[in-house]
């Protein structure tokens, strides 16, 4: 099921250009687990920074 979901997601990426669904919105401190390779413990500590969030998968 997980593989099917992942494949569909990838196919979605290949089939259509990514739509800019969220531009103009404000992002209020999302819940992120296991923040690594940073001194921040939670997203709120990125306050005042310009932030690039990349959505990715290892496969």
């Amino acid at each position: 099921m997980k593989l099917v979901g992942s494949t569909l997601l990838l196919l979605g990426a290949l089939a259509a250009p990514a739509a800019s669904q969220s531009e103009g919105r404000y992002l209020v401190d999302p819940d992120l687990d296991g923040l690594s390779q940073t001194g921040a413990d939670k997203y709120a500590e990125f306050v005042g920074r310009t932030v690039l969030i990349e959505f990715f998968a290892y496969w």
């Binding site: 997601l9 990838l10 196919l11 979605g12 990426a13 290949l14 089939a15 259509a16 250009p17 990514a18 739509a19 800019s20 669904q21 969220s22 531009e23 103009g24 919105r25 404000y26 992002l27 209020v28 999302p30 005042g48 920074r49 310009t50 932030v51 690039l52 969030i53 990349e54 959505f55 990715f56 998968a57």
Partner: peptide
């Protein structure tokens, strides 16, 4: 929540917390 339907995808957030760009 960000309407991401395919990856990789990214959002750029300015210092005010506003999403100013989204795309590959």
């Amino acid at each position: 929540d960000m309407g991401v339907t395919g990856i990789p995808n990214a959002i750029l957030i300015n210092p005010a917390g506003k999403i100013v760009w989204q795309g590959g």
